[in-house]
Structures are given as structure tokens and as C-alpha cells.
Design a protein around this nucleic acid. Structure first.
Lengths: 339, 339
DNA sequence: GTGAAAGCGCTAACAG
DNA sequence: CTGTTAGCGCTTTCAC
């Protein structure tokens, strides 16, 4: 058989109709065990594989989902992707990668891919809806979209997230508990909700401990290494620099630690540093970073499960986000302040 | 318009046939500029998007490619993925993620996805062909497959790679040039070609310098952090431990550096370490790792370009791999040996 | 330049 | 239980 066999080829050889073959192949109970077996054997023999386009066209299902992130190059997404991929594959779905790089045109494009049957559903990790350019607006509620990691308010979409506020508070409480009082915060880009929540957690912990937060102790970064360095430099030109840093993500925390070293300050001897994310290989950094670990694989898994539920037609309560637990890993970058 | 508009809807409103609409939409010259414009306007107004399944079924093209890796969780692939994605999107292709985790069943599965029309081509980064279980064998030459990063011998497939041998040699030559003579090597898993080539580069550099390589100076790892630690431990129980390490990838290099620190040896004061890959954030490590940087985005880009060429029907010379240049980044983890 | 019509390969009524 | 048949939405001959 030179050409790819189709259902018709099997039907002819088996001496049955295409309908029967289709049924046998999809495990319909409407086929005798014997016929089914004959067909199955034949299919294997011919090395038959159903044509996905034909099937999709007919069933109106693509059996693939779209995973959309801001930057595929960011290692943070890796384990999430892994979790999504594993769960998707188990359910027979393929995963299409989407990368917006915050380009509105691309954001729209990926939504369009849902409409044109490229994918059945989408896991959105960009933290925002595309501008209302394409008039997919209004169709939104009909599309199967799960927001993971980030939060999009007011769209009525289901969410899978972590308690950024609580996790940040816990991280800062750790610093307080080992004796720090002058604790500064390098935040993520504002007014993104994730950054906001982490900053609120920081403020709450400080407030609860009766500690002061001078305005200059809150510096705004953008989650990238360089901004961690820069923010750190700013903080240590202050007349009364902090003894500890709560940084909104690991990448900036590395930047800060790197900068501290350059300035001749020891971590954690002179300054303690706490990050957020628990990046791949973060335990290999020196000193190993104390950080909030997010259950990334589980986030991916949960988001995909939720999406599958939606795709199966179940009603989802979008008002109650799924919140996954974080863990504060206390490692070598934090220590009590010097006398 | 509640339902998704199809070509027929446009045709009716425009008072033309579906054929004309199809032609106008695909920029065929067989349509008057005026009709075309009317149709285009209408399409935009209705927010029309062609159904991909129908189109794929008809054209026998899925306009997507499969990117298959051993482990999506490995950050090494990130920039490659990014390069592939960007190039693919520009050409109108989507990228499907494939993750084998070295499971033969999955390896076969992804090849099957080519046959069933799920994807038009594949970029394979697993370094091996699936076991000849599915009888896709023989069909191989008909499938559009590009091998990137790794090497698969004898399959007649086009390759995009780096000169692992030369890059490794250069790295070791650097160590030699700053005065090291007792240089050990932590290799990747054998007999994988990539590991083999890097080891050969190491040997060649040593040989050229007239340096001895005691058998115990070559330890075999598996590219993971822990194995870097382990191998390092072995090396430093030798009666005459090395003063420098050439490690086959960054992840193990971090493991080794971590272990050296634990053993109270300073990097680079007591021991110099050179890695391979130049991982994301590697400059933030302490000390910043001297390492061979691979042009990952370019590898992704080149592989996708090559695949596009194949998909466009061009004949490819599979005997001449595309070899991309590496750069040795000399950073803080290497220094002349102590007196 | 445009239209009619024939499928691409599959599934799902509907009949038997 | 099995077969016949009508599409899914699109592209592409082949006529006109």
C-alpha cells in the first residue's frame, strides 16, 4: 500500500461499509466483536491512521489546545507547560504554543485561532485580554478559556492561581521572624495584579509587625535580571539601606544578589534576599536562594483539567478561582541581621 | 450573525459564487479588483475566518509543525523553541509541542502525527529515531523531518547543529592557555554522539598540548545537576585531583561548582570550571560561569527555515549539515591555577 | 472573470 | 447489527 490508507480501503478489504469501519474504530457497541476484531486487525496491518482534518471537520473538534504565554523564552513557564502537556496528552489533546510578546496583534491572533477551529480551548497566561479590536468580544463567554497564573478581572473567566498575597506575606514574615526590621521590596511591573498582590503581602506583613515602610523601600522592577540589579543599586544608595530584600521574583532576586556581590556586600551576611518562584536550578545558585515555590506543574495540570471540564460541557463556577498552595523554601540567602 | 460565517455566507451577500469568494480570499488574480474588494470588505465585516480543518482537508496541509524534545522541562530548549516559533509564525505555521521523555511509544506517536496530517513537518531534537515498531519506517524519506542540535546517523536526514568537537576543544584550550595541566572532564551520557564529540574535543586539546589524561579524569554524567555533583565528588577523592574541570553542560557544571563549594574549595581560586550551553541566567551565577554559548535562537531559526524549504518541495542536501558557530564566554569561573 | 460541481476523509443520522 | 447517504467548509478543476 503506497498511499495512506483510508477508511474506505479497510472497508473494501473487510467486505463491510465505511460506516462499520468507523464504528469499529471508535469502539461503538454497534458492531459485533468479530467484525470489530477483523477491522482492527486490518487497520493495524495497513498501519491505518485516521486523517485528523477530516475528523475535525466533521466533529468540529480539533483535539488541541492553545497555551498562550507572554514569552516562551522564560523558564518560569516550563513546568507549567510540562503539566499542561502531560494532562492534555492523556486526554488525547495536542498542545499548540502561543507566544504573544505583549503584541496586541498576536493576542488577537491567538483568540482567532479558537474561532477558526485551530484549537478547542486555550490556557491564557498573559494576564490580559487582547484589545477589543477583533470583534470576538461578546463571543468570549462561548470560548473555552482558562486563565492560569495571572488574574483577569471582570471577564468572567475561570482561574487557576496561587495566593500571591499570602505567599508574599509569609516570605516577609520569615525575614521579620529572624530579626530583620529594615526590609525593602523590589516589586514587579505595576499595576499588574500579580505584582500588586505580592506587594500587598509585603505591606501587610510589615504592618502586622508594626514596621515602617519608607516610601523609598518600595522599588519597582519589571521581573528581569537587570531591573533587579538596578533596583538594588537604588536601595543601597539610601542613607539607611535595608538589611533584607523581598524581591517579587527569582530572576530579579538573582540580579539583586549579583549586584550586592559587586558592591562588596555579602549575602546573607550583610543582606538577606528572598525571591519568588523557585526557578529551575535555583538551589544551585550561590547562596541557594530562599524563595516561594509555586507548584508549577500542578498549575499546568489543574488548568488543563479545568479546560477539559469546560470542553466536556460542564458548567464552571468562574467566581471561585482554584488556588494552589505555595511553599516557602528557606535556604542559604537569608540569615539574621548583623549586630 | 450568530453562527460563524462561512464562505457561503459571504458569497450570498456579495451576490457571487463561493468559488469567487475563495479566490478573492486567496488573492487569486482571477478576480476583478472590484469584486475582490467587495468580498474582502464583507469578510472583515462579518469577521470571517476560514475553517482550518476544511482547508487542511482540502489542501492536505495542516500548516503546523511539530517540535519534539526529550524533556519540555529543560530550559535549554527555550530559546530554540522561541526561534522556531518566530520563524514558523512568520511563515504562517503553528508550532505543536512534542515531549517524548524518552518513551518509545511517544516517539512513535509523534511520527504518526506527521502521517495523520496533524503536522506537515517535524523538528526532531531527541537525537534518535523511534524504534521501528510502527511501520512508518521506509516512509521516513517522505516525511519532512529536520534534526536539530543532535545527530542521527545514517538516516539521511538534514541536520542543524553546532561543532561540539571544536567548541569543546576551544574550551579546554582556554584552560590550558591559562596554565592548567591537570584538567578533568565530566561527560554527558554515552554513547550519545553529542557527549562523544565533546569528549573528543577535550581529548584532542589535551593531546595537542601533550597533556596526560588519566583514565580517572574522565567521568561520565547524565547532564543533570546531581550527576555533576557526584562526578565532582569522585574526582576530588583522587590522589591527584584536577585543578580544572571541563564539564559537558552547564547544569552539571553548576552541580560541580556547588559540590566544590560544599567541599570547601573555591571556584576559581582552587578549581576552575568550564561549562557548555550558556544557560539562561548563567551570568547571574556565582561565580559567573565560563562556558560555551550555543546560538540557540539561531538553531531554532535555521531548523525551521530548513524545514520550510523542505515543505516547499526543495531538494535538500542531507550530507552537509548546517553548522552554527559557538562562542566561548570567558567569565569568572576560570583562573590560572594556584602555585 | 465567474459559476457549477466534485470531492478531501470522516462521522452520524436514518433505514433496514 | 450493518449499509446508504448526506454533509462538515473549503479549494479547484472544468465549463462558460
Amino acid at each position: 500500500m503506497r498511499e495512506r490508507p483510508k477508511i474506505k480501503d479497510i472497508a473494501e478489504r473487510a467486505g463491510v461499509s465505511v460506516a462499520t469501519v468507523s464504528r469499529a474504530l471508535s469502539d461503538s457497541p454497534l458492531v459485533t466483536a468479530e467484525t470489530r476484531q477483523r477491522i482492527l486487525d486490518l487497520a493495524r496491518e495497513l498501519n491505518y491512521r485516521p486523517n485528523v482534518s477530516a475528523r475535525s471537520l466533521r466533529t468540529r473538534k480539533s483535539m488541541s489546545v492553545l497555551l498562550v504565554v507572554r514569552d516562551v523564552g522564560n523558564p518560569f513557564y516550563l513546568d507549567i507547560l510540562k503539566g499542561v502537556e502531560a494532562t492534555a496528552r492523556e486526554a488525547g489533546y495536542s498542545v499548540l504554543m502561543g507566544n504573544t510578546e505583549s503584541d496586541p496583534a498576536r493576542e488577537i491572533e491567538y483568540f482567532n485561532m479558537l474561532r477558526d477551529g485551530h484549537a478547542d480551548g486555550m490556557i491564557l497566561m498573559t494576564g490580559k485580554l487582547p484589545p477589543a479590536g477583533g470583534n470576538w468580544t461578546g463571543t468570549l463567554n462561548r470560548l473555552a478559556v482558562v486563565v492560569a497564573l495571572e488574574i483577569i478581572e471582570g471577564a468572567g473567566l475561570p482561574h487557576v492561581q496561587v495566593d500571591n498575597f499570602g505567599a508574599a506575606r509569609e516570605a516577609v514574615e520569615h525575614l521579620i521572624s529572624i530579626g530583620h526590621r529594615r526590609i525593602a521590596h523590589i516589586s514587579g511591573p505595576l499595576p499588574e495584579l500579580m505584582s500588586l498582590h505580592r506587594r500587598e503581602g509585603y505591606r501587610e506583613a510589615m504592618r502586622n509587625a508594626g514596621l515602617d515602610v519608607p516610601e523609598a523601600y518600595e522599588v519597582r522592577g519589571d521581573f528581569l535580571l537587570e531591573s533587579g540589579q538596578e533596583c538594588c543599586r537604588k536601595l543601597f544608595t539610601l542613607p539607611e539601606p535595608p538589611t533584607a530584600l523581598f524581591v517579587a521574583n527569582d530572576e530579579m532576586a538573582y540580579g539583586a544578589a549579583y549586584e550586592l556581590r559587586r558592591m562588596g556586600r555579602d549575602v546573607p551576611g550583610d543582606v538577606s534576599v528572598v525571591g519568588f518562584d523557585d526557578l529551575y536550578l535555583s538551589k544551585a545558585f550561590y547562596p541557594p536562594l530562599t524563595t516561594v515555590s509555586q507548584p508549577r506543574a500542578e498549575i499546568g495540570h489543574a488548568a488543563m483539567e479545568l479546560l477539559l471540564k469546560i470542553l466536556s460541557g460542564a458548567e464552571i463556577d468562574c467566581d471561585e478561582p482554584i488556588v494552589l498552595p505555595t511553599v516557602l523554601h528557606i535556604r542559604g540567602s537569608t540569615a539574621p541581621p548583623q549586630e
